[in-house]
């Protein structure tokens, strides 16, 4: 049911596993790099984060329909925000990759609705500041991220596509069905299976 696609392991992007530098693979701990910016304004740490994440944020935005120029601008702003807010990064809430994805999301919201003086990105910030982790809930956000990344690699290609559209792009199930030209029931069952699979990976963290 959750057949690993043959591309599963090779396509996996090694966030914590390593970045290529010439012929070497240097381990990269994104959480530690953000913390190095917070504690000592570490420009080298920033450069490594930028080189790794900015092109991915740009790619993500472009897949979601953002034009290349704007995606470039928002990706740069995302990493600038990482520098400015590094001190607010809390790895118990989310790993660096997820934190950066939410920053990109907020900037996209701000930009899309700038003319309407949108406050929604502020709402997300308040929710993030809210809710100091409960003592019985001391789950490392980085650990959760790693588990989710693992679980994603074992989804079939079809399931992954549905998850991406529904959970990252936020399309309604009906819109996902329309975009992929598949029945609504198929979207719902793929998502149900995919979520059950993802949540199984997180079970003991809850």
């Amino acid at each position: 049911m959750f057949a690993t696609p043959e591309t599963g392991l090779t396509r996996r992007t090694p966030v914590n596993a390593g970045v290529r530098r010439g012929s070497n693979t240097v381990p990269m701990d994104a959480d530690a790099l953000v913390q190095a910016i917070a504690s000592s304004a570490d420009r080298q740490a920033f450069a490594r984060l930028f080189d790794h994440f900015a092109p991915r944020v740009k790619g993500l935005l472009m897949r979601g329909g953002t034009p290349a120029d704007l995606a470039e601008e928002l990706a740069q702003e995302t990493l600038m925000t990482v520098w400015r807010k590094a001190a607010l990064f809390d790895p118990t809430k989310a790993g660096a990759g997820t934190w950066i994805a939410t920053i990109a999301r907020n900037l996209r919201i701000d930009h899309a609705r700038r003319e309407k003086r949108v406050r929604l990105s502020r709402v997300f910030e308040i929710l993030e500041e809210e809710s100091p982790e409960q003592p019985d809930q001391v789950v490392s956000g980085s650990e959760r991220d790693a588990r989710v990344r693992d679980a994603l690699t074992s989804l079939s290609k079809d399931q992954y596509k549905v998850v991406e559209l529904a959970f990252l792009e936020g399309f309604s199930h009906q819109d996902v069905a329309t975009r992929l030209s598949i029945p609504l029931g198929t979207v719902k069952s793929r998502l149900r299976l995919a979520m059950a699979h993802l949540r199984r990976h997180l079970e003991d963290l809850r």
């Binding site: 920033f46 450069a47 930028f50 080189d51 790619g59 600038m80 989710v148 949540r199």
Partner: peptide, 30 residues
């Protein structure tokens, strides 16, 4: 938070598109 982590996972797996600007450019703007 789990759904946001899926967003982070998709970001990590997604295809990168080369940037025209560099980390140095971003630091200068900061």
């Amino acid at each position: 938070r789990e759904i946001e982590a899926i967003g982070g996972g998709v970001l990590a797996r997604g295809e990168a598109v080369p940037m025209l600007t560099s980390a140095e450019d971003a630091l200068a703007r900061i």
